[in-house]
Amino acid sequence: MTPTILMLNGPNLNLLGTRQPEVYGRTTLDDIVADCTRLAGTLGLRLDARQSNHEGVLVDWVQQAREGAAGIVINPGGLSHTSVVLLDALNAFDGPVVEVHLSQIHRREAFRHHSYVSLRADGVIAGLGAEGYAAALRHLAARLA
Rank of each mutant, 00 (worst) to 15 (best):
V117M: 10
A34L: 05
A65D: 02
Q63A: 09
H81M: 10
V84D: 02
T27D: 10
N14E: 12
T18C: 11
G129P: 07
L79Q: 00
L29E: 07
T2F: 06
R46D: 14
P3V: 09
I32F: 05
A142P: 00
G129C: 02
A69P: 05
T82E: 09
A130Y: 01
S118L: 04
S115H: 08
A65F: 02
H101N: 01
R50C: 09
V85N: 14
D30G: 11
G25D: 05
Y24G: 01
L6T: 12
V98N: 06
L119R: 15
G78S: 11
T82L: 12
L45Y: 11
N53A: 05
Y116P: 03
D122L: 02
H106N: 04
L119G: 13
G68P: 00
I105R: 05
Q104K: 04
N12P: 03
I74F: 12
Y133T: 00
D60R: 05
H113I: 03
N9S: 14
V84T: 11
A134H: 08
P11T: 05
G56K: 12
N14Y: 10
I125Q: 09
V97G: 02
L144E: 08
S115M: 12
S52I: 12
T82F: 11
R19A: 06
V73Q: 01
H106V: 00
V73I: 09
H54T: 11
L128H: 14
V23P: 01
G71T: 06
S118E: 01
L119V: 10
H114M: 08
Y116T: 03
Q64G: 06
